[in-house]
């Protein structure tokens, strides 16, 4: 191929946090940048931008994925959930309450990814062991807490979700 191939914009239609969006994107637009800059959803953080740190974790069709390793162009038809889907300051999700209560964060930079990893774990395994929690958050780098309080927060979140479900 010669380098004169014209780079076409890609038209995508996707659901983000329950809302339908239609956009034209440049193929190289990373999903992390699309979410933050095109949709203004800055809850998804951008750290290493090569898939190592996990702070850009989002849910793609129900499973976590690194938003920095996806192109928005690939997400036509996808259902995306970001950290904004969990709760608000006034009405926090039980996982967010637990992270607050158990000091599961200090600087907060890793927190969006941690919350999404915790959400994926608890959706699939409502009563995880601490070993399973460690495994689940092992792909999210936190340089503040030493992880102990994060593990406790996820354990506490599991209890809160179960209690909520039991009314």
């Amino acid at each position: 191929m010669s380098s004169v191939t014209e780079i076409k914009q890609v038209r995508i239609s996707l659901t983000v946090n329950g809302e339908r969006h239609e956009h034209e994107v440049e193929p190289r637009r990373l999903l992390s940048d699309f979410l933050r800059e095109d949709l203004g959803l800055t809850g998804t953080h951008v750290g290493c931008e090569h898939g190592v740190c996990g702070t850009c974790n989002i849910m793609l069709d129900g499973r976590t994925a690194r938003a920095c390793l996806l192109f928005a162009a690939q997400c036509d038809g996808a259902e995306i959930r970001t950290v904004e889907s969990l709760g608000t300051v006034d009405k926090m999700h039980p996982i967010q309450e637990a992270f607050w209560e158990k000091h599961g964060l200090q600087c907060g930079f890793c927190t969006p990814g941690m919350l999404m990893s915790a959400a994926e774990l608890l959706e699939r395994n409502p009563e995880p062991s601490s070993e399973e929690i460690r495994e689940a958050v092992s792909s999210n780098l936190c340089r503040c807490t030493g992880y102990q309080t994060i593990v406790e927060a996820v354990q506490d979140a599991a209890t809160r979700i179960r209690e909520q479900a039991n009314g």
């Binding site: 191929m1 990373l30 390793l69 192109f71």
Partner: peptide, 21 residues
């Protein structure tokens, strides 16, 4: 059509980091 100018994108967990760099 594109020959060696093209790369295949599967899961992207190795190729996309290399592209980002």
């Amino acid at each position: 059509k594109h020959g060696e100018a093209a790369r295949i994108l599967a899961g992207g967990q190795s190729l996309v980091p290399m592209m980002n760099f």
